[in-house]
Design a protein around this nucleic acid. Sequence first.
RNA 1: CCGGAGGUGGCAGAGUGGUUAAAUGCUCCAGACUGUAAAUCUGGCGGGGUAACCCUACGAAGGUUCGAUCCCUUCCCUCCGGA
Length: 392
Amino acid sequence: MTSFKILHKDGKARVGELTTQHGVIDTPNFIPVGTQATVKALGPRELSEIGAQIVLANTYHLMLRPGADLIESFGGLHKFMGWDKPIMTDSGGFQVFSLGVALEHGNSKVVAERGKRKRESNYVSKPRLNKITEEGVVFQSHLDGSKHILTPEKSIKIQRQLGADLIVAFDDHESSKHSKAQMLESIELTERWGLRSLEAYKRSCHDSSQILYGVIHGGTHKDLRIRSARFTDDNFDAIAIGGIYGDKRDLCRIVEWVVDEVSEDKPRHLLGIGEVEDLFNGVERGVDFFDCVAPMRRARFGSLYISPNSFINIRQSKFTADKKPIDPACGCLTCGNFSRAYLRHLYMADEILYHQLATLHNVYFIIHLVSAMRDSIKGNNFKKFKSGFLQD
RNA sequence: CCGGAGGUGGCAGAGUGGUUAAAUGCUCCAGACUGUAAAUCUGGCGGGGUAACCCUACGAAGGUUCGAUCCCUUCCCUCCGGA
């Protein structure tokens, strides 16, 4: 039983509220990613002021460091990180696979250089293959090479210990870019792991204070996606859509296939998605939640959102003396107080404040964009808002 | 004025008779970034051509060499000592 209420619809786009132990989340909503129990460069207070209603942390990273037991001993993630609003945790499945693949391809010996600061990154350079069995995934830590196993039961257990409001079933990613037959095997495994996740969840979570998402996979195969959607809807109260990598055109199709197979009254989360255009496309097709690294990472790399639907790269020398704020149309603290020239200077000087101000802006920008989407849905003019924003 | 050191691409700074259009870093230009091993990564960076290739270049002018950024001479300039 989730306490998800749909308040208004405009086409397939909908506005709703998801109630959790730590508060109500307006939907559609963008969830800033804070993998290691922190949204890089922003503290809880800034996040609140920006309007973030929930953050996403990661099971894989936190189990390795600092460890789930430790966080539990602090009373859970909320207390540990000083954030009393809702938290979502990802199952760790994504890392266990994406890191495995990355390492397998040997692109692990990276030397980062910038300015005078030269350092060998602490990437472990030996290839570390993940072994997938029916039981789960055996993997080696990217931190020290130590061996670990992640299973559906273990992922749920850790997510219980962390105490997030929204949690995710352990899913398989292995066959995402292989044949259809392999994709079928993969979603079957995801289904079995999903049921085990659900069982572990039920055993350990009597009051349903945590909401468990099942994950839809199936790559770009319509029938597989539909099958996976039905399965997920049959078994879970909350729906996550995973495995959308790369090709933007696939996103719309996949979401359309899947949304039609899923109960109206369940929250729908598009995992890992969050560029501006994707948010519009997802919301338009009935998606309620998004999480993405893009706004934060872009900010740190110098890529700052401006409206409508564009970026500036603050590195460019043309901003050296630019007195305008990043985005004149933006209401964030950064835009209210600082020039592009100052931001560029901070960036060039490698100053920490750059990351704070830039991240604040980008996250504010996205959160307020999604908030404006909600308003436009309530006003029955989402499509107009979308086309107005996306075309320059 | 005397003694010493040196003048290399936007800057700093390697280099040495041919494989040097010239290491490296910075700047600069462009690109990437979607359930974060990311304050990161990838390209370009004398001019011209799609290209093979051509032209101009290591303070200036001469010289020695098959060949000089690298050796010699003179000049100009800079820096450090001493009057």
